[in-house]
Every structure is written in structure tokens, then in C-alpha cells.
Design a protein around this nucleic acid. Sequence first.
DNA 1: TTGTATGCGTTATCAT
DNA 2: ATGATAACGCATACAA
Lengths: 344, 344
Amino acid sequence: MSLLRDFHEEMEMPVRLIDIAHLMGVSKSTVSRALQGSPRVKEETRRLIMEKAREMNYRPNSLAKAMATKKSGIIGFLMYRKSPPYVAHTFFGPVLDGAIAQAAEQGYHIILAAADDIENTFDEYFIQDSIDGAMIVSFYPNEVIKEFEKRKIPLVVINNVVDSKKNTFIIDDNYRGASSIMEHLIKERGHTKIVHINEDLNHPSFSIRYRAYLDMHKRYNIPVFSEPYRAKHTTFQEGISMMQRILHQRDLPTAVFAATDTLALGAMHAIQQEGLNVPKDIAVAGYDDIEAAAMSNPALTTIAVDRGEIGRAAVQSLIQQIADSEKTGRIITINNQLIIREST
Amino acid sequence: MSLLRDFHEEMEMPVRLIDIAHLMGVSKSTVSRALQGSPRVKEETRRLIMEKAREMNYRPNSLAKAMATKKSGIIGFLMYRKSPPYVAHTFFGPVLDGAIAQAAEQGYHIILAAADDIENTFDEYFIQDSIDGAMIVSFYPNEVIKEFEKRKIPLVVINNVVDSKKNTFIIDDNYRGASSIMEHLIKERGHTKIVHINEDLNHPSFSIRYRAYLDMHKRYNIPVFSEPYRAKHTTFQEGISMMQRILHQRDLPTAVFAATDTLALGAMHAIQQEGLNVPKDIAVAGYDDIEAAAMSNPALTTIAVDRGEIGRAAVQSLIQQIADSEKTGRIITINNQLIIREST
DNA sequence: TTGTATGCGTTATCAT
DNA sequence: ATGATAACGCATACAA
């Protein structure tokens, strides 16, 4: 009789619904109902069952539950990269932290996946039918996003917006952030020779920051000092390299607006290596407010993006979409804040 | 007949084993065997089935597979904390990155969980029977570790060792790292007045670093300058506070060895605020080689711990334990390296 | 070499 | 108010 556990085994097995049912002399249906608060069970019965379940330390098997309900309670956190840093990335990490907190609060779990092309995304690297939804943080090609729509997997896209009816997009207000940095530099500090260091101008966030850079020149009627300097990656070393190139020009800027803190920190380093003072000779501003920004010397002026809030909003929106599949997507903007420190 | 899919539905359902079976006129067992390379199927049949599966873009449902095999292919990454930073933590993040890479390589997935007490760990915060094993990174109470053993869940513990037969422990060689920092300070730089800033001396990693600090004094026959300064947390602010207290003593040290880079960076900041020079007046060394350590001014001398390697080793060992449940636990030591930069 | 039947632990449907 | 039973999609022991 397979329903009777083999008690010769020394190892204690997890308690199942049917174990409780047997001990209580009821069917597993009743136990199931009692435990999930269905009204279709006598209060007295429920009380006894819950007591027993508690006593036996019963925990439902989440896999079986997922099978039956077609909901796993798992959210995929996707990073479109083929090598680290994944979560150690200064942006992804805090976003994921917010997501973890929010997910836990709503009884969801987060599973990680890194893939660098469409194939991988929906192949062995990915828990196909086991996630209720996904959030993607890095810069995915549009086709990937479309593919999610096709497969009807609820999706939240962070820091990127493409044409889509169903998906939700969460973005930091890059235009507002970059504008306030520029206004601080121009209006409060009187700079007119500001150079911009950027990375991939195809990335929406970065192109918007650059646009704000240009627009603020127009608004305050000052000529653009130079073409933007484009780093290959947004790394400390690249920040150094870019700044060294800038320092070799005859006409030096009085301020640098880097599209990320990491680049800004590199730039600052290069300036100081040259024996120049930050901010007296050249002011430096970044964007993101990464941990190192507050610990640098001088401490870096930057835009604080509430990355945790981005993660929380993403999970919240995702769970809404999971609950109501008819819900249409939308664009959620997260605020940011100018943090004036010592570098400007 | 329930086996026939309702084709009135516009939405395309995922392909199942039985769908392929029907189209091929065989049973789903044969399809299952063919797909997983069982020898119990004619080569010709297998070829046809695999072709069809490929054509229909079949992907096994991982939940169902997990139910049937009792293996989910999911590894839990546990952090014993009740608030962020979780993965944004300067140590956990890179460890997780290594784990992600290694897990992907071996066809596993990683699910995240944060809990701050035993209850939570095995309660709603945790995918009970859905993980094949777990790795824990922060400083868990021993009871939690024992509980895993009791439940026969393969476990790898990082940076902490307790008495246990089954579990595997992965540790950075703290003694070696801290000793090399101290020898650098004493032998190469000639310091004799070295103060130590630490956090929780109950944490194995930290207590070992402190022990090395003491031992090196003995070995080089110099008196210990002072009691260690104990920060409440390992934060930049606490580093500043501790250093300020140190700077208020009449007798100043000529070097500071902080148990973490974050504390060291704070200490450096406090020293510079006081108008003193690092390293001329007071040298500063940290431990961990976090990202900010290379970007500080002056750049921080520290111990580089290959945190990615820790994560990779953890996953590798975990998967071995999962495959061979008889395997006994062991202790794996990861090497580290002295990085001499400008702060000493 | 292939098919049939059963189990995995739930939830959900249909009886009673 | 409760029980019996069928899904969920796969793997596998047992038959043929």
C-alpha cells in the first residue's frame, strides 16, 4: 500500500497533506480546504486540522502546489550579460535588493538568470514554465522583449522603453536628473566649459542624459564645449583614459559631467594625477550615487537614483500583472535627487 | 477527451511530451526516453523524435520534471539579514556572481532568500522542498546549520566553520591574509604602532584576522599598541567614528589595519579631514579589495579575496554533494593576495 | 524496442 | 460539510 509511509527508513520525510488526513480520519481534500481557509469546511474541523498541521510542522510542497495552480511564486531576474559583474554591478545589485525585499513581502521568490542572447534566454539558461513573470535589468535587444510578449509571460523592463502594449517599463527620470546636474554646474557654479563623458549613446538612459546636457546648453544660451567623450565601458579605467585624452587638449574644460559615477571617479583620479585640484581646477559630477561616490576624496557630486525603489516597483507591478493578466502595461518613472558634495 | 488540446484557444500553449507522442504515433514514454538519451529506443525512432521536438521547440516543464525526479536543479542562496544590503553587499555580491556563473555552467539555477531567524529560514521565506541544496553566506547561528543537516539538505557554508560531518565549509584564508598585511606594515614599512579596527569579534573571519594581528606582534617582538577598536557595523561612517576616537588619543599610531575596506576607507577619510596625510602620517590598510578600494585617493592597500572563486567553489561542491549524498563534508580554503597600493 | 500504469503532492471539480 | 477523483507534465518500474 503506497500511501503508507515506509517507517523502516530512518530519515524523516516531509509531512504531506495525506499524512495529516490519515491521522485525522478525513480526506486530503478537507485538509487542503481547511488549510487554505476555504469556507467549505466546518470551523471545528478546521481548528483541529490547523492544530495538527502546526504540530506536525506541515509545509506545503511548493513544487506540487505550483503544478496544480500553474503559479510558482517565482519571479525571474534577468541580466543580459555573458560575464560578471552580474549582481555585483553597481546598478543591478541595489535594484535586486529592492526586488528581494518586495518579493519577500508579497510571498514571492526571485530566481536569477544571466544570458547573452535570445537563444539562451529561452533555452537551458532559463526556467521556462516555472516563473510567473520576469524583470529584466540590462539593455536587452527588443526582440527579447517581444518574445516575452509572444509567450505571454508578464514582464517588467527596467531602464529601457520600447513600443509594447502589455509590458511595464520602469525608468529613472534621466532627463530630470541630468538636467539638474547641468543646472547646478551652470547656474550655481557658473561653469560654461563643460565636457561630457558617456558610454553607449544607443542606450536610452545614456542618450537621454546626453540630450539633457545639450538642452541645458541651449536653455542657458552657452555653446557646447566639445563633442562627448565616449568610453568603451563604464569602468574606472575608462574614466581615467577618457579624462587623460581631455587633459591633452589645448583648451581645458572647467567641469566634467560623466554619465556614471564610475567614469566620474576615474576622471577625478586622472585630474588629480595631473596635479590639478578637484573642484578648483576642474569640477567633476557623476550619476547614480554608487557606494564609492560618498567615500571618494573629494566626495562626488552626483544624482542619487533610488535603485532599491526601482526594484520594489518592478516586483510590485509584476505581481499586479500576474494577478490580472488583462492589465495593460505602463511606464513608471522613479524620482531621483541631486546630491551636492565636494567635487563641484 | 482531455488529452486533446482545445484549439479554440488563440493562445499557443507550450508543447508537451504527449503532444509530440501523438504527432509521432508513439507513447510519451518513448518520447521521454528518446529525449533523455536512453539506450532503450531505436536510433531511427530517436532521430525522428528529436527532430520533431526541435521543430516544435519543445522544452520540458521544469516543475513537472522536478516533481518526478525529486530534483529541481535549483540552489538556494541564503543571506541571514533582515534588511538590505543583501546582494549589494560588497562581499555577498561578488560571491553570488561566481555562484551564478558556475551554476549556469552546470545547468543549475539560483534562487534568493533572506531571513533573519530560524523560523523564517524554514518558513514562508523559503522554498522548502524545492531546492536541491543551499549555500549560506552571512553569519548564521549554528542552529540553522544543524537544522539543514537534520533535514538532509546539502549545504555549503561560507566564511564560517562549525562542527559538522556533512556540510562543506568554504573560507577565505583569513589568517594568511591578515598576517601578510601585518608583515607588510611591520617588515616592509617599519611600523610598530599599529592600531586595529574591527567589527564583531565573534565572527570567525574577524576574530581570525585579529588573532593574526596579535600573533604578528609576537613574531616580530613588538608590543601591541592598543586594544582593538570595535565598530558597531562595518560601514564608512563607523570607520570615520572609530578613527576619530583614535585621533583623540594622546599617542597616535603610525598605521591602521582595518578588518574591512569599508572601515579602512572611513578611517582614511577621518585622517584626511584632520589635515593629516595618508600614508605619510598614518598608513591605512584594509581587507577585501572591494571596488571602491582601487578608486579611493590614495588607493587602498588591502587583501584581495577572490570572492567569485568562493561562489564558484561553493556551487561546485554543492552539486557534488547533491549527486553523491554519501559524500562527507570538508573545508575548502580559498587563497588571497596582498595588494599594495598607495595608502601604506 | 515499445507501451501501460503509477507516482510525485498539490488543487479543483464533481458528487454525495 | 465532506469525499472521491481527475488533472498538472514528467519519469520510471513493470509488461509485453
